[in-house]
Design a protein around this nucleic acid. Structure first.
Lengths: 237, 237
DNA sequence: GAACCGAATTATGAATGCAGAATTCAATTT
DNA sequence: AAATTGAATTCTGCATTCATAATTCGGTTC
């Protein structure tokens, strides 16, 4: 069963708060297809036969094709003229490139957020972190995973740069697919939690440069941990 | 870019001779619509009546609507469900946000390019710079403008991170629309050329950190110059 | 038996048609 | 006369249909 809440981009959450049903069909299709790609239900490289998907969703090809254009511009699928569309392959080199850019974005977010965040919002992030630690202790992988995402997402959002938030969400989404595939090992959890502590410390001091460095480093290490599972050990189940 | 890997000379020859036509119609429509938005032919806030545009292009609504979805995800136009699409407004706050993110991307590019660029490619950038200086001296605004864009674009490209290049291009495009509107004054040209000299100097020394700083600063100053003409202060909301 | 060519099938790209929402405009009411 | 309501028109969203390129499969030839 698909629960869109924390995994999908900003659009999904906003809509969820307002209405249960989406205004337009192709937006709904974009969300559902994106989930399917992220969760691996449509594996990398898989061809996307329009008619089958249409039958699955109970819609016609028009809204589906509109949705495919959007997902293609997000980099999740590829369109080959007259030859159909397919789920984008996960290229190790591209994944590394994604992490590099995501790191630069978090660096910027770190600098900005220190200048613009309120005390209450710092407390909010600390609460998020506490929840994450609790889920880590309970070894609830899925919940920990989602809280982790949420923490970073909220931190970027608090930088009060909507363009940055939107861009960051896009990269998170693309990377999420790889993270699902490579469920990296447990000991990285401990490191990750420790790094979050340091991140919060820098945030409390409102030391923008230090926070930027810490975030970039955290991102780099996470990337390497994941890359190690994607590139080196092909760990399929 | 295009699938030109034709082993059969005849088909490729015919294509090249006839026209550089795109494989799919909606791709062509995306390009043409984007140009119209960038050049101000479709001014910010303008509604986009599908039928008129269809008549103008001599196409049906289907490929147009697919193109609109793509441009919406690029941030150039807005889709309001059941209420039509319109060219995205140029918001001073959003423009400032765009420059912040673009600066972070160039910073990353600066670090990467120093580690990955070859001597020949440095020479190529110097040639581009020289051409730009020449056009500056000749007071050829349009040509200078384009060379300037090209210089930065190529520098980012030489960072050898395709994701970064694509993202940077996207932001350049969105900003380009504002730059067209605000043809900032001539004295900024001189500053800009001087900054390019420093950028090249840092590149020659392959001092990634310094180059990153220089690029970020150059970006910030350009942004402020443009923002001053658009109407917003540097940071106002 | 393998390679090659061509017709049949299938899938994609684009156009048209149809239902419903939004806007417009006129008529009615206060 | 101004405001409001509702009918008519316009436009968007989606489904359906048509055309064309790609793939598949069967037959032929070497």
């Amino acid at each position: 069963m698909v629960t869109n809440a924390g995994v999908l981009g900003r659009a999904a959450e906003k809509q969820a708060a307002a209405k249960i049903k989406r205004a337009t069909l192709h937006d709904e299709v974009v969300s559902r297809l994106r989930s399917m790609v992220l969760e691996g239900e449509l594996p990398p490289g898989a061809k996307i036969p329009e008619q089958q998907i249409c039958a699955l969703f109970g819609i016609s090809r028009t809204p589906l094709r509109e949705a495919l254009k959007v997902l293609a511009s997000e980099g999740l699928i590829e369109l080959r003229p007259n030859r159909g569309s397919a789920v984008a392959m996960v290229d190790p080199a591209e994944t590394a490139a994604l992490f590099e850019v995501k790191g630069a974005l978090e660096e910027l977010a770190g600098r900005l957020v220190c200048a613009r965040i309120s005390d209450e919002e710092i407390a909010e992030l600390e609460a998020l972190h506490a929840r994450m630690v609790e889920q880590h202790r309970a070894e609830n992988r899925a919940a920990y995973f989602e809280s982790n995402q949420l923490f970073h997402r909220r931190l970027v959002e608090l930088s009060r740069n909507p363009v940055l938030s939107a861009t960051y969400d896009g990269f998170s989404t693309r990377i999420l697919r790889v993270r699902y595939a490579a469920n990296y090992n447990h000991d990285r959890w401990d490191e990750s939690v420790a790094e979050h502590e340091e991140i919060l410390a820098a945030l409390r001091r409102r030391d923008g440069e230090d926070l930027a460095r810490k975030l970039a480093e955290h991102n780099r290490l996470t990337g390497e941990a994941i890359m190690g599972h994607v590139g080196g050990g092909s760990d399929r189940r």
